[in-house]
């Protein structure tokens, strides 16, 4: 790694790890379904940042750009489906609290 690369590498990794920690913390502490969704969204952002960093480190930015754009599209699809599920939960329960979702046990 050249000195120039090292200068970029560590801040990027630190930011990605920070996003992972934030996302995990957020998913674990919240009782709100939408917030849980935002938490996992932050997690995916961390992964996206890591892929961009991988492209920068290997100098293969063309490949990783393609990967990241595909990833963003897939992520949007998942979030829309999850949003739809949350909407239906709200219509059923009149609440989006995780604690209401405890009917399945065993």
């Amino acid at each position: 790694m050249s000195p120039d690369l090292t200068q970029v590498f560590w801040p990027f990794s630190a930011a990605a790890i920070l996003l992972f920690v934030m996302g995990t913390y957020y998913v674990l502490v919240t009782f709100n379904l939408i917030r849980a969704l935002i938490g996992v969204e932050i997690l995916i952002k961390g992964a996206t940042l890591l892929i961009i960093l991988a492209g920068y480190v290997t100098g293969n930015t063309g490949l990783t750009q393609a990967l990241v754009i595909t990833l963003i599209v897939i992520e949007v699809v998942i979030m829309v489906v999850a949003g739809g599920v949350i909407l239906c939960v709200y219509r059923n329960n009149k609440s989006i609290d995780v604690r209401e979702l405890r009917s399945l046990k065993g």
């Binding site: 890591l50 892929i51 990783t64 990967l67």
Partner: peptide
């Protein structure tokens, strides 16, 4: 995805 990023590295 994180694993894929590391593998690409």
């Amino acid at each position: 995805l994180s694993s894929i990023a590391l593998i690409v590295m």
